[in-house]
Nucleic acid binder design. Structure first.
Length: 214
DNA sequence: CGGTTTTGACCTGCGC
DNA sequence: GCGCAGGTCAAAACCG
């Protein structure tokens, strides 16, 4: 079985270990965004199996292209191999009218345990705003992709319920490759997944010797 | 000096 | 219409 690694295996960050999405029996030209980015849907990836917001976050099953795609896709988050049928991937339907008005952008939300608030995902971001949000003691930070002509945005905030988690949402799809030249794939909003409690060397095929800490 | 961050002001949508 | 909340702008500050 061939594994696909979404991320830059040579990436090194002394403050944060990484987890990677591993795909079994990949199809040609597969991109994670093909499966996880659904028009008018919000996909949440929870890499620690926590079950929260069960009312609003419904598990993605039938009637979703994600469910169809999951038949041949396995993901690894936080070191645990899972399929797309379990609670690690949740789909929030019924997006707000505002979201629909914003050109039906594609949004992916990652919930990741990390000490770092801003994680290097392989793309270059420019911060353009910071806002305190209701019912959360933590501010929300707004970033735009620094690449000219690329309108991808991301929002980063600490989970109000558990500050050890970071919620990172990506809006849109990059129209360029990651500045990280040896990234394994191209235009998805993210290229690296992080986790503090994974022995990422198990997954990374070509790691730097200096990045074996976590 | 150029790129990035900060931060208050402004804009927009929504509920009442 | 008004107030609130979320999102964005843009000038100033900061930094390498």
């Amino acid at each position: 079985m061939e594994d696909y690694y979404f991320g830059n295996p040579n990436y090194s960050n002394p403050n944060c270990a990484h987890s990677f999405v591993t795909m079994a029996t990949p199809t040609s030209d597969f991109m994670l965004s093909d499966y996880l980015l659904l028009d008018d849907d919000v996909i949440m990836i929870d890499n620690h199996h926590q079950h929260q917001d069960q009312e609003s976050w419904s598990q993605s099953t039938e009637s979703s292209s994600l469910a169809a795609a999951s038949s041949n896709v396995n993901h690894e988050f936080g070191g645990a191999t899972t399929s797309s049928h379990n609670n690690n991937i949740k789909c929030k339907n019924n997006v707000s009218k505002r979201n629909k008005q914003v050109e039906a952008r594609q949004r992916v939300v990652f919930r990741t345990r990390s000490e770092l608030e801003v994680m290097d995902d392989g793309f270059k971001w420019r911060k353009y705003g910071k806002k305190s949000v209701k019912n959360s003691p933590n501010p929300r930070n707004y970033y735009k992709c620094s690449s000219v002509g690329c309108g991808v945005k991301k929002r980063v905030e600490r989970d109000a319920e558990d500050r050890s988690y970071v919620l990172t949402s990506y809006d849109g799809v990059h129209n360029h490759q990651s500045p990280s030249s040896n990234s394994y794939y191209t235009t998805s909003p993210f290229s690296i997944f992080h986790s503090n409690d994974i022995n990422w060397s198990l997954h990374a095929p070509a790691v730097n010797s200096s990045s074996s800490n976590s």
